[in-house]
Amino acid sequence: MSTGGGAAGGRRAWLVLAAAALLALAATAYVLRAAGRGGAATARPAAIRLDDRGRLLFRNAGSNGVLASVPLAHPGGSRVLSGLNCVRLYASAGTGVCLTVRRAAVPKIFAVILDRGLHEVRRVQLPGAPSRARVSPSGRMVSWTVFVSGDSYTSPDLSTRTGILDMRTGRVIESLEDFTLLKDGRPYRSPDVNYWGVTFAADDDHFYATVRTKGRTYLVEGDVTARTMRTLRENVECPSLSPDGTRLVFKKATGDPSRPWRLHVLELRTMGEIALAETRSVDDQAAWLDDHTVLYGRLDGGATNVWTVPADGTGAPRLLLRNAFSPAVVR
């Protein structure tokens, strides 16, 4: 839902718009640009499979945003490129989701669902600019977040829409706003509620996400079957569940406009958190390289790059891929 105001429009330069869309900024302006850059996702022959374990999938920023792949053991090696143009992507257990824009007088945005061979099996039209995407560990559940208005997660005009697709039943939940939210244990309703950044548990029923209301953000735990969510704690955005299901990596608002967010890890059993060694601001839904390392996209000057950092607060950030974004590990 919207808190008022409009999208940023075409106020930013070309380069800033392209990078900002990757980092969930300048949403409406990005849609207009993206539509002119590559059209809808159309697969071409490529040696990429979503069940090829030990590889890293990502958006290749150096080739108009096509889905690409490299071996985890040699991330600096030759990249295999597909013909799928994705603003955001994710994959797990042979199921992929590519948030893409179809070129037209009025651009259209879709979540394109892919099988293990990158063939399209489902297409869901979306109401706004691509922001986040996730697939459950089993490949059954798919989620996406789009901006309907507002130009960033710090905008007072923020309005997002987050949906879920159940690949087994074919059912689409168009908006998490249709679920019942329990805040501090009580049913809560407000016209300014917005959700984003779903991450699924291994049972395909429970998930975590972010809700924002009255200028504050909260971590919520959701139940698809019960169509409910409950708040767990404040100041948690874009959570991502670790492969072992015990921790969440998330971005935490710092209150510093020059560095709005810092990555943290939350231990779900104790609710204790650790600040990670990446002290620069990260506006991304981070992913997990393994149970000990997180990876994330960052806008570095005029480029988007993928970095890693230890999940225990030690060490230092390490550049993994240049000209890349939206990483996903094929497990």
Rank of each mutant, 00 (worst) to 15 (best):
S69V: 12
V70N: 09
L72N: 11
H74W: 04
G77H: 00
L81I: 10
S82M: 08
S82E: 07
G83S: 11
L84Q: 06
R88V: 14
R88N: 14
Y90D: 15
Y90N: 15
A91W: 00
G94K: 01
G96E: 05
G96L: 06
V97D: 02
C98D: 06
L99W: 04
T100K: 00
T100E: 09
V101S: 10
R103Y: 11
V106S: 13
P107C: 10
I109C: 09
I109P: 00
I113G: 07
D115P: 07
R116T: 14
R116I: 08
R116W: 11
H119R: 12
V121P: 03
R123K: 13
V124N: 09
A129E: 11
P130D: 08
P130V: 09
P130C: 05
S131W: 04
R132D: 15
A133V: 10
P137G: 11
S138R: 03
G139I: 02
R140T: 14
V142P: 05
V142W: 03
S149I: 07
G150I: 03
D151L: 02
D151A: 14
T154N: 11
T160H: 01
R161D: 15
T162I: 06
I164M: 06
I164G: 05
D166A: 05
M167Q: 14
I173A: 05
E174K: 07
E174I: 05
